[in-house]
Design a protein around this nucleic acid. Structure first.
Length: 502
RNA sequence: GGCGUCGUAGCUCAGUUGGUCAGAGCAUCCGGCUCAUAAUCGGAAGGUCAUCGGUUCGAACCCGAUCGACGCUACCA
């Protein structure tokens, strides 16, 4: 037990919340909830990235100010996360004063360390885009957006001397094995570092929607020092040292594979320069494809997670996202897959188990929960299930953790078949078999809570538990034999009504 | 081009340092049960572990080559 600080990327508010945002946020939420069950003091952060040229342009197009524009989009994320039962402890917006204070402090620290210096950035610039392009982004020498020639432009920028951090970064990763999961991603990071690091821009003069550099107000902070810094500004860097020292360094940055470079190269180097410890860990996820293709506005396959929640329920959606793809790999979202997962794992296995147990307890045990057998054959299976579930959450593999948990559910269904309590005369045998099933359900419910919090709470209540499931601790409450007999067991409506393909 | 990851049952994938490692879930087929959300339980079938060669007493697991898929190779976040 200790502290556990976990973050999602902050999401750029030029788009509405979509499946991709929901995916990494749900993974982070489940991990946060898991660590709370472990007894850790957890701080879970998410938020929005609100500065930059694209926001400025979007605001112009919408005829509003950037601040008004972001004020209209940021709440959409906050509302979406509420709907998805995201238990974040904080939500940082990069337009908040506390963020500005922290960014200024970080810039100053790196500047004072001598790692930020004025230099010239030269690149191929498209005036209407107000953006630079690299050679290979160009379309026959033209801007890919406006199809018109780009200009070679030089601009005065402050630069971060990333090139000075090559060896320090290599040393860091070699002395911190396991910091990046899945571990093959660290190869990508090292490969990038070893090919030689170039300094990157810290500021832009052409940009107005952002945070001015504290040592030169004619420049505005460019994305890196603004967005990445959220992870420390939100926990008090620049505003609350005590809080900052409590939570930093972060345990897990949940990120997508597309932003590894910024999080695993730029970010730790920035921190090193400022005299701050690098993160303890990064968990790199793949993309959730849709029908085998990357989600994009142009292909029109953008999935709105809230519509799926309306259809299949929060927990159905959360469970699908967590269980159906191994974290770190690309997953493929399909409607058929969602329904199939939901029916087989949630409706048929878990939901139906809860229902049949309640019915038999009602018929054979006067509706009151009975005590499990200390030497039930389910006991060792439960212990194994708990052990494996713990191991898989530990290495950020929700899909495997859930599979391990579900082993106990299947074993419990089998245990009922083996004993057929519905055929047996009321008595000790029936009582112990049903007690076993209730006990297994109790344990499963704790283990599954991070994935399906609402339903877990409901099962907990229905089987007669009077405590708060969130106060359970994995280490003490998942061992066999703790179900307390004598409380009413309620059947209730199906927890997960079966769905048919529309 | 360079670096990296991967290619195991119809599908999605497990397979720690080479010797019950040929497995799980879903799907399929057969049978049982009827407490349960036509749910559940048992059983069966199904793979020359991409290909070729090598190392070894022994390789899905190590080495080399080939074919194929994918990722990274820097200022959009």
């Amino acid at each position: 037990m200790g502290t556990y600080y976990i973050t999602t990327p902050i999401y750029y508010v030029n788009a509405r919340p979509h499946l991709g945002h929901a995916y990494s946020t749900i993974v982070a939420d489940a991990l946060a909830r898991w660590h709370r069950l472990l007894g850790d003091d957890v701080h879970f952060l998410t938020g929005t990235d609100e500065h930059g040229l694209k926001i400025q342009q979007a605001a112009d197009a919408a005829g509003t100010t950037p601040q008004e524009f972001t004020d209209s989009i940021a709440p959409l994320f906050q509302e979406a996360w509420q709907r998805l039962n995201i238990s974040n402890d904080d939500f940082i917006r990069t337009t908040e004063p506390r963020h500005r204070a922290g960014v200024e402090k970080l810039l100053h620290a790196c500047f004072d360390a001598g790692d930020i210096e004025l230099d010239k950035y030269s690149g191929l610039y498209c005036v209407p885009c107000e953006a630079y392009f690299t050679e290979d982004e160009l379309d026959n020498g033209n801007c890919p957006v406006h199809k018109r020639p780009v200009e070679h432009v030089e601009e005065e920028n402050y630069f971060f001397r990333l090139s000075r951090f090559e060896q320090r970064l290599i040393d860091f990763y070699s002395s911190h094995p396991g910091a990046v999961v899945p571990d093959h991603r660290v190869n990508e990071v090292l490969g990038f570092i070893k090919q030689g690091l170039q300094d990157f821009s810290v500021s832009r003069k052409t940009l107005t929607w952002g945070i001015p550099l504290p040592f030169d107000k004619s420049h505005v902070a460019y994305v890196w020092f603004d967005a990445l810094a959220n992870y420390i500004t939100a926990i008090g860097y620049g505003s609350d040292d005590e809080m900052f020292n409590k939570w930093w360094p972060v345990n897990h940055h949940i990120i997508g594979k597309d932003i590894i470079r910024f999080h695993n190269v730029y970010w730790p180097a920035m921190l090193m320069s400022a005299g701050i410890e690098p993160p303890k860990g990064w968990a790199v996820g793949g993309w959730l494809l849709v029908g085998g293709e990357k989600m994009s506005k142009t292909s029109g396959n953008v999935v709105n997670p809230l519509e799926l929640v309306d259809e299949i329920g929060v927990d159905g959606f959360r469970y699908y996202v967590l269980s159906d793809t191994g974290y770190g790999n690309d997953g493929d979202f399909t409607y058929e897959g969602l329904i199939s997962r939901y029916n087989s794992d949630l409706a048929n296995n878990l939901g139906n188990l809860a229902a049949r147990v309640a019915t038999v307890v009602g018929k054979k045990c006067e509706g009151l929960g009975t005590a499990p057998s200390p030497d039930s054959p389910l006991a060792p299976i439960a212990a194994q299930s708990v052990k494996e579930t713990i191991e898989h959450w530990e290495v950020v593999q929700p899909s495997r953790a859930l599979e391990a948990t579900w082993q106990l559910i299947r074993a419990t269904n089998a245990h009922l078949e083996n004993n057929e309590p519905w055929k047996v005369e009321t008595g000790p045998l029936v009582d112990s078999v049903m007690g076993d099933a209730l006990e297994a359900l109790r344990i499963v419910t704790i283990l599954a809570f991070p994935a399906i919090p609402d339903t877990a709470r409901e099962i907990w209540r229905r089987i007669g538990m009077t405590t708060n499931i969130e106060e359970c601790r994995i280490a003490t409450d998942t061992s066999w034999g703790q179900y307390i007999a004598g409380h009413p067991v309620e059947k209730g409506d199906p927890l997960f009504p079966r769905r048919t393909l529309a």
